[in-house]
Nucleic acid binder design. Structure first.
Lengths: 209, 209
DNA sequence: GGTCGTTTCAAACAGACGTTTCAATCGAGT
DNA sequence: ACTCGATTGAAACGTCTGTTTGAAACGACC
């Protein structure tokens, strides 16, 4: 039942999905949804929570002896494949992404149990990479990483039209993992920057402004 | 008429908005929409195009003698205030953002006339900053910049809940402009990286992997 | 002033939707 | 075997939607 509802809500959204089609998919009667869940909105909430429970969990933490840089690379790779899932997203991932852009009452539990743990692990990695920075900076850095990853999913249709389907297809998960990781590490001074063959380039140019 | 439709579509979305309240807002009769535009979908398309025409245009190109780094800073500042518009978005900006996430037939014109020009200006700036990189890298770099900016808008509700309203409010446009510009320039080797007080830090650490 | 194409108006239509109703069915407890 | 609460079933209800209708009002032109 929740499976059928989740798939339908993920495909069509809350407004687009109808309780009739959901019940047909589940082989249930129309009245079952109101009997078991009350109304359509509560069914949606339960479907979102079900998507979180049955969806891909967070990969276990790395050993403490791997470098923060490697840690970040693994985080980005896992985020791109488990949350963004550009290639073949499951309905769990699609539905949770929908809830991120258009939050409902289910978003509170989703933030608490799925989003915040991921976010704090990322913040922890960045804190290890930038020991001196304050909380505001760590938050902004975390959003910079997550924003880069989510962008390919949230604006996929437009981005694909923007650069062409072939060029967009060449931005495959492996390349993006490399790119986002290196982009971030370079911004943090842990990898050689783009656009320069030598690191002396860094000190030759002045700081911004 | 298009004004009323645009405001309503921006607030409620295509499905949420009804032709009745649009006509009420515009002081028009219900049949006017079908007489002038054919149906609701074509009205929406015209409203999106109207939003693009009357919305904030792209600021003029910088002089050729300002540095690419300054150019990037102006681009990010303009993008955050004209496209993202975290503080007080007009319905034009909201409607075009909706069209980015949920594209309709109007998206083709929107990409051609509004999005691609902005994107190519950004690509041009990044190309000047990274003379050696190929097209794929420039595209990924452009998406990294745009993704950082749009993230605060597209996942605003969730991000606000994630870090708390006060902390989210501290990420004001000035701070974000600074952060995203510096983050990007540091990744490109044009600004000192985060997490290190001295530039020698860069060469002390090894490259990734 | 009359005429004709254009625009406005109130009303209604047809369909889809979430929800409700109430009788039928089931299943465990005694 | 009976009973009673829980569940399922088909049908209908009420509402809201986009769309259509046909008459009325308007405005320029001869």
């Amino acid at each position: 039942m929740l499976e059928a509802a989740g798939e339908e809500f993920a495909e069509k959204g809350f407004d687009g999905a109808t309780v009739r089609v959901i019940c047909d998919r589940a082989g249930m009667n129309l009245a079952a949804v109101n009997y078991h869940f009350g109304d359509k909105e509560q069914l949606y909430e339960q479907a979102v929570l079900h998507a979180h429970r049955c969806g891909p969990g967070m990969p276990p933490a790395e050993d403490a002896n791997v470098s923060p840089a490697e840690d970040l690379r693994h985080y980005v790779a896992a985020f791109l494949s488990n949350v963004v899932a550009l290639q073949s997203p499951t309905w769990h991932q699609t539905l949770m992404l929908r809830e991120m852009v258009n939050p409902t009452r289910a978003s509170e539990a989703l933030v608490r149990e799925a989003i915040r743990p991921r976010f704090e692990r990322l913040s922890g990695i960045l804190r290890r990479l930038c020991p001196g920075e304050d909380d505001r900076r760590i938050q902004a850095l975390s959003f910079s990483v997550v924003g880069q990853c989510l962008h390919y999913k949230l604006t996929r249709s437009i981005s694909e039209r923007l650069v062409g389907a072939e060029a967009f297809g060449r931005l495959d998960p492996e390349y993006l993992t490399d790119h986002i990781t290196r982009f971030t590490l370079a911004a943090l001074g842990e990898a050689p920057p783009f656009g320069s063959m030598t690191e002396s380039h860094v000190s030759r140019k002045g700081a911004l402004k």
